[in-house]
Write a protein that binds this DNA or RNA. Structure first.
Lengths: 312, 312
DNA sequence: TCGTTTTCCGGGAAGGCAA
DNA sequence: TTGCCTTCCCGGAAAACGA
């Protein structure tokens, strides 16, 4: 638990201070500096996104999000006026730079204006949670990055950066807190929803935990793709009957446009992002994902109860 | 023609100036003052709404309008930077006060924010018209007046006030120009369109030319109402076949809810605004106008070609 | 509670823009 | 021209407000 760490920290600090005369002044200074670093990093990592903004975010449409400062109740006890948390849209590039600077940089300009983007960081007296609750936020407009070649806007990932400045109560240290949301695809119309969902699904399923924002593999093993589609299917249709081997085989034939290979052949193949949601299926006017998402939707709306036996 | 009047004015002024030594200084001063008054009133009345904003105006929806300064080409010849014309929403009350002060008052606050509401007053080099063209205007939000009793928001009339300050080129006199649009009913949703149209129709048909804004009779002779409905019908359906005596009789029975009177009886009756669009027709869920407008719409859409013979 | 008024937003239609 | 992207805005649904 985070609070315990702070307690340990303060106890340690007190012990050191008590022993300060016994330590040489030089050693003491070094120790104190180290203390500050530890505290700062501890505090920073206790500033979290509690409720993520929607990963497919439509402009001019209200959404919600919240951040939580775990150490708030412990370290901000007597705040005279509440600290304000800002929410700003940042590009993937900006997110990367922030991450690389270990969140010590400060944001120069956002890539989209968010309405009502400053909210007080308040400690709820009953639950004791220190949160900033963005209830009425709305992305007014998005500034697209220049994108190369065949990249579409629905492949562009942004994020919301939450940031604030707090002054810790006992030690009087001022700290700049920043945290990024999960990647977000911004759309301006419902007709972009499909493609945006594809980008988000791919990212959520195939990105490493500790990646540089927001790199993700361009091709992945087919069986991982199957797992992902299966999870998506069950979540979307609200069923506990998953996809079966035959289904995977059918999907594989479809996405690889290969009707001669055996199920085992497909097992070891890799599927690319392009195959997933860029290339048009031969003879059809849509990509693999667009088709799959359509099937999801149909199944969800019409066939839910019949889905225990077969399909297609 | 307006310009001719100005020419006459300037010739007169020159003659007076030429004779200035012969007139006593006192008389001269009085004459000059009178000249200023005349010029000012002339100039003010040459500032007109060329294109009226829609009289049923929906918030968050773009509209257009333009004003024209007839004497602009003559009196603003060498303007270093263009004069800006503002457009502001005003309430009926504000409109009345402006009118009563003879447009010498200046507006303190508007009753609704208009986006892109300042536009340059420019002289078109080809046509020689001096206009301010509001192309991209949009009413963001409307502040409703407090209304008494059973009044609905769709009975509330506002107007757009166009205003600017110009300095006349030869005489160097600065004048504040203001002009009001026709009355406007502001709606926020399509489902208010019907009722708003009723208010506008009643106002346009039955208001005096020189009224105090925006008073209009509360009851009018039935035959004037018939004329109005007939005009509306022909305009809306795009036909030159008007309504007939039988139709009027039918309408009268409907609006007066009186099936015993003769057509001649109705001739001399008066119909009230309440009967027109406030009271619900007995046994139906709508008012007379709501019904009539529905019929208009139906006729327009489906029966236009059949409308040469009969109806209902 | 019910009726009025407003906000929210999905999605069709059309405008804008670049390849 | 076509396809992608965005803006515009209608109208259903539901929330908010008021009597």
């Amino acid at each position: 638990r985070c609070e315990n760490l702070v307690e340990v920290y303060f106890q340690l600090q007190q012990q050191v201070m008590a022993a300060s005369t016994e330590l040489g002044p030089e050693l003491l200074a070094r120790l104190l500096e180290r203390f500050n670093e530890v505290l700062s990093s501890l505090v920073k990592s206790s500033f979290l996104v509690e409720k993520q903004p929607p990963q497919v975010l439509k402009t001019q449409t209200k959404f919600q999000a919240s951040v939580r400062f775990l150490l708030g109740p412990r370290l901000l006890k007597a705040a005279p006026k509440p600290y304000m948390v800002r929410a700003d849209m940042v590009t993937e590039k900006q997110a990367r730079e922030l991450e690389l600077s270990n969140y010590s940089n400060t944001l120069s300009e956002s890539t989209g204006e968010i309405l009502h983007n400053t909210v007080a960081l308040e400690t709820n007296p009953t639950s004791g949670n220190c949160c900033a609750n963005f209830k009425n936020v709305l992305l007014k407009k998005i500034k697209r990055c220049e994108r190369k070649g065949s990249e579409s806007v629905t492949e562009e990932k942004c994020a919301v950066l939450f940031s604030t400045n707090v002054t810790l109560t006992p030690s009087n240290i001022s700290i700049h807190l920043q945290v990024l949301s999960l990647p977000i695809v911004v759309i301006v119309h419902g007709n972009q929803d499909n493609n945006a969902k594809a980008t988000v699904l791919w990212d959520n399923a195939f990105s490493d935990i500790d990646r540089v924002p927001f790199v993700v593999a361009e091709r992945v093993p087919w069986d991982k793709m199957c797992d992902t589609l299966n999870l998506k299917f069950m979540a979307e249709v609200q069923t506990n009957k998953g996809l079966l081997k035959e289904h995977y085989f059918f999907l594989a034939q479809k996405i690889f446009n290969d009707h001669s290979a055996s199920p085992e052949d497909f097992q070891s193949r890799h599927v690319s992002w392009a195959q997933f949601n860029k290339e048009i299926l031969p003879g059809r006017g849509f990509t693999f994902w667009q088709w799959f998402d359509g099937v999801l939707d149909l199944t969800k709306r019409c066939l839910k109860s019949y889905w225990s036996d077969r399909w297609v």
